[in-house]
């Protein structure tokens, strides 16, 4: 076994050439996932609420976006944005930005469905009570419905975050310096320790994802107390 290869390149796996060079490795994967989930949250919130609208002109674009993205592989979206960017902006977008855009667009569609399900899962009486006391639809949404449904959404949301963390490895294909690509580079350079290298990669992804899911489970227990029981 050649664990020394892993040992000698561990810092490269963890944060790439940083601080002398660009950020890479697991740190880059996490940054991509964090920015991705942040962007996806806002897009998903907007699209999810739009899809719940009774107005067809509002609902329709959101439905198309969600259904198209959900019916498309992420890898294809990554390619698509990478090759579309020069046409749209007149110059190539750096690979990381291009990949991030794909992550946001892709995850946004799933978050939208989480938002929609979260809102629909609340008892109808909540909206009726809010509207019945004179709150407008927007006020009822922002003070009564969303605070509850966003809280109920947290587990699904973390789930989506875990998926995205793993999916950032796909950015490898367009040359983004993240964990998967850095590991492949080291493997190509040394080619005597593929097993050790990829076991290390697996363990690193696992640690991050496992930490997230454990956190989510604890959060879930905590929030259960405030769920509406009157269905």
């Amino acid at each position: 076994m050649h664990w020394d290869v892993v040992y000698n390149n561990l810092d490269y796996f963890l944060w790439g050439a940083f601080p002398k060079g660009p950020l890479g490795g697991l740190a880059m994967s996490i940054v991509l996932a964090l920015l991705g989930i942040f962007g996806a949250f806002w897009i998903g919130l907007a699209a999810g609420l739009m899809r719940l609208s009774r107005n067809g002109f509002v609902r329709w674009p959101a439905t198309v976006y969600i259904e198209v993205v959900r019916g498309t592989p992420l890898l294809m979206l990554i390619f698509w944005f990478y090759f579309l960017a020069p046409i749209l902006f007149g110059h190539t977008l750096p690979a990381a930005e291009s990949a991030l855009t794909s992550f946001i667009v892709f995850t946004g569609a799933y978050v939208a469905e989480i938002v929609r399900a979260g809102v629909l899962s609340l008892p109808r009486g909540q909206m009726e009570a809010a509207r019945g006391s004179g709150l407008s639809h927007v006020q009822a949404m922002s003070h009564v419905i969303l605070p509850q449904s966003l809280r109920n959404m947290i587990p699904s949301f973390v789930n989506q975050f875990v998926s995205l963390t793993k999916d950032t490895s796909l950015a490898y294909i367009i040359g983004v310096d993240e964990l998967m690509r850095n590991a492949t580079q080291v493997n190509n350079r040394t080619y005597n320790a593929p097993t050790e290298i990829f076991i290390t990669v697996a363990v690193l992804y696992f640690i991050v994802c496992f930490a997230l899911t454990s956190f989510s489970r604890r959060l879930e227990k905590h929030i259960m107390r405030y769920q509406a029981r009157n269905r």
């Binding site: 008892p123 009726e128 009570a129 019945g132 009564v144 605070p147 509850q148 769920q227 509406a228 009157n230």
Partner: peptide, 13 residues
Amino acid sequence: IGIVFQQFNLYPH
């Protein structure tokens, strides 16, 4: 016009 429901519908949060 105030209304009171069968299921109370208090805001649990």
